[in-house]
Design a binder for these strands. Sequence first.
DNA 1: GCTCTTCGATACCGATCGGTATCGCATGGC
DNA 2: GCCATGCGATACCGATCGGTATCGAAGAGC
Lengths: 207, 207
Amino acid sequence: MASTASRPGRVAKLPPRERILDAAEELFQSEGILRVGVQAIAERAETTKMAIYRHFETKDALVAEWLRILAADYQAAFDRVEAAHPDRPREQILGLARFIAEGLPTLSHRGCPFINSLAELPERSHPARQVIEQHKALQLRRLVAMCTGAGLPDPEQAAAEITFVLEGAQVSTQNGSVDRAGERLMRIVEAIVDRHRAETSRVAAAG
Amino acid sequence: MASTASRPGRVAKLPPRERILDAAEELFQSEGILRVGVQAIAERAETTKMAIYRHFETKDALVAEWLRILAADYQAAFDRVEAAHPDRPREQILGLARFIAEGLPTLSHRGCPFINSLAELPERSHPARQVIEQHKALQLRRLVAMCTGAGLPDPEQAAAEITFVLEGAQVSTQNGSVDRAGERLMRIVEAIVDRHRAETSRVAAAG
DNA sequence: GCTCTTCGATACCGATCGGTATCGCATGGC
DNA sequence: GCCATGCGATACCGATCGGTATCGAAGAGC
């Protein structure tokens, strides 16, 4: 037989903690948090419940860690969009909207993990809630910064409007009521930015 | 002692089925569907589990019936808004937005029941999902009709935009990221309608 | 080569879940 | 007055939940 050192299974296996997080990611996203048991996560991760509790204090801690990673991935995508359009805040905003719009067909009828998790975890003390609220707060701050950079006269209002349509597009995709949500999303975000820019010139002309 | 006929308890009690639905409404809204057991509903309704299963085939059927009633209430509110502004579609649209905006502080950090239920019940075959999707589809149709009545040149796009911001305002209120969501919601809905009206005159001028 | 940690496997815990069976009582229609 | 029905109470079912205890094999560092 071959050596056992470099051939842990049929393919190279990640360490247990990564496998657990990957399995949790897939199951939580497709079936929800509450409906997925720790045993099911262990099986998909090709490990055992005990291994999970060796790496995470409780199931709630695992949920929180999953959302933390997801939020970090999301912020990284945010970073890439910003970097792709340096010093052009309007393009950054539209790039962000495009990022969301392109993701809509993927999440299809199983919506945004943050929104869903918020629905599944009503207790304000749950560790996952803090992760979600911090993430949303950070996202809004970055959006406000972009709107400020774009010279919009009321960046808080503009950022709030964009936040509304981004989240609304995701839930409307989830319940399948609106078709061509991606295109519609892009159109309205452009319209929001342009309207606020028009406000700029109006304010400038008046001042 | 007084007659027992007209004095069923300390106060006049509704029939069990209504009490069950009331209890389910309160518990599902505040704690979510999956976290509330049938036993807990029975206790709050001052009855027993058996009584619940005499009126509803399964817990899922109770959930579906709850959402059916909720959707009917919602459509009734929709009717009242329409009736309050006969033949003035623009006022109807703004009235609807105001209805949602005024409800935001009430649902506070425990969002829209339809959005939450969608997150809690991922199985497409669940009876409650059909109720939700039908409700959302009907709401969108009515909104499209209002936009058509208002003479907007692209009523589907306008209705989709309004749907996005209505739903987005609710989830952003739930996660607490946006302050003054009600005012912001009203401002953007007005802006959407006015922008589409401006498109109207532009199209008319070009035609 | 030895030891210390990690991993996998299994069995188990108490609690709770959705759902059912049964029984006695009260009530309303006839 | 009688009887069918609705209701409340209790006990119970199998399944699953989150979480723990235990034990043996395997691997890495010194």
